[in-house]
C-alpha cells in the first residue's frame, strides 16, 4: 500500500518534472539554446514564491500568477538582451553564458537567503486529504498535478491555435523565412524564452510546496529537466509529460527504498534508457517539431 502511495506521489511530482523538461525543450527546440541556468530559474521560482508569501498572505493561485508574470519578463529580457547575441550554429557560447548565469543566480541566492534548506508551508491546505479506494491522497498534490496538466494543455493550445505559438514552431523550422514574413525574430525568441522560464519557475514553485529546496537544488533540477527532454523527445508535449511522470515515479519509489539516494535512481533509469535504445541524436534532431 505504501508503494502505491509512493507511485501516486511520484506521478504528481512527475507532472512538474514534465513541465521542467518542456521549458528546456522549448528553448532548445526553438532557438537551439541549452539553458544551463534552467535549474536555477526553477529554484528562483520557489524563492520568489516563498518571498511573496512571506511578505503578504496571498492565495496560492495569486502567487502562481505573479511568479508566472515575473518569470516571463525575466526570460524575455534574458533572451532579448543577452542570448540573442549568442545564438548561432555553435551552441557553446550560449551554454557557457548560461552556465555563468547559473553561477550568478546560485550565489546571489546564497547571499540573500543563506544556504538553509527550505520548504513552502501552506498551512491547513498542506494537510487536507481525501481517501479514494482506501488510499489517502493529499488535496494539495492533486491541485498541483491538476495545474501541471492544465499548463500542458495550455501550451499545446498555444502552439497550435495562436499566431505566436505557430511562430515558435515555424522559427524552429526556418527562422529566415519567418523573418521574410514580417516577424521580428528577436522578439519571437524572447517570447519563447519567456514561456520557457515561466514554465520552469511555476513548476519550481509548485514543487517547493511538495519538497524542500536550497540555492544548490538547481543542478539536480537541471539534470532532471534534461533527462525528461532526452527520454520524452524534443518535439512532443505528451512525451515530456510521460517522461516526467516516469522519472518522478522512479525517484519517489527510489527514495522510499533508500532515503539517501536523492536523484540517483532517476539518473540510473535515464542511463538505462540511453543504453537500451542505443541513443542516437539524429533521431531527436529529425523531429524537432514542438
Amino acid at each position: 500500500m505504501s508503494l502505491l502511495i509512493a507511485i501516486i506521489n511520484g506521478v504528481m511530482v512527475g507532472g512538474l518534472y514534465g513541465l521542467f523538461g518542456l521549458g528546456l525543450a522549448l528553448a532548445f527546440g526553438i532557438m537551439r539554446v541549452v539553458n544551463i541556468a534552467h535549474g536555477e530559474f526553477i529554484v528562483l521560482g520557489a524563492y520568489l514564491g516563498a518571498a511573496l508569501l512571506s511578505v503578504m498572505p496571498l492565495n496560492i493561485f495569486v502567487v502562481v500568477c505573479l511568479v508566472a508574470i515575473i518569470a516571463f519578463g525575466v526570460g524575455w529580457l534574458l533572451q532579448f538582451s543577452l542570448l540573442n547575441r549568442l545564438i548561432g550554429p555553435n551552441p557553446v557560447p550560449a551554454m557557457i553564458a548560461t552556465m555563468g548565469l547559473s553561477i550568478i543566480i546560485r550565489n546571489a541566492l546564497v547571499s540573500v537567503f543563506g544556504t538553509d534548506i527550505r520548504a513552502i508551508d501552506l498551512g491547513s491546505l498542506q494537510d487536507a486529504g481525501i481517501t479514494l479506494f482506501g488510499v489517502s491522497i493529499g488535496i494539495l498534490p492533486l491541485i498541483i498535478f491538476a495545474i501541471a496538466i492544465v499548463l500542458f494543455l495550455a501550451v499545446g493550445a498555444l502552439m497550435t491555435r495562436t499566431t505566436i505559438g505557430r511562430a515558435f514552431r515555424a522559427a524552429a523550422d526556418d527562422f529566415e523565412i519567418l523573418e521574410t514574413l514580417g516577424f521580428d525574430r528577436r522578439k519571437v525568441y524572447a517570447s519563447a524564452m519567456g514561456l520557457a522560464i515561466m514554465l520552469a519557475a511555476v513548476a519550481g514553485l509548485l514543487l517547493a510546496v511538495r519538497s524542500s529546496f536550497s540555492p544548490y537544488s538547481g543542478v539536480e533540477r537541471l539534470l532532471i529537466s534534461f533527462e525528461v527532454v532526452i527520454i520524452g523527445g524534443l518535439g512532443s508535449l505528451r512525451g515530456s509529460l510521460i517522461a516526467g511522470i516516469f522519472l518522478g515515479v522512479v525517484q519517489v519509489v527510489g527514495l522510499k527504498l533508500n532515503p539517501n539516494s536523492g536523484p540517483l535512481f532517476s539518473h540510473l533509469a535515464f542511463l538505462l534508457i540511453l543504453l537500451v535504445r542505443h541513443f542516437d541524436v539524429t533521431f531527436l534532431f529529425a523531429r524537432k517539431k514542438i
Partner: peptide, 10 residues
Amino acid sequence: QGLTAIVVMV
C-alpha cells in the same frame, strides 16, 4: 566568475 564567463562569451 559567472559574470566574466558571460562577458567573455559576448
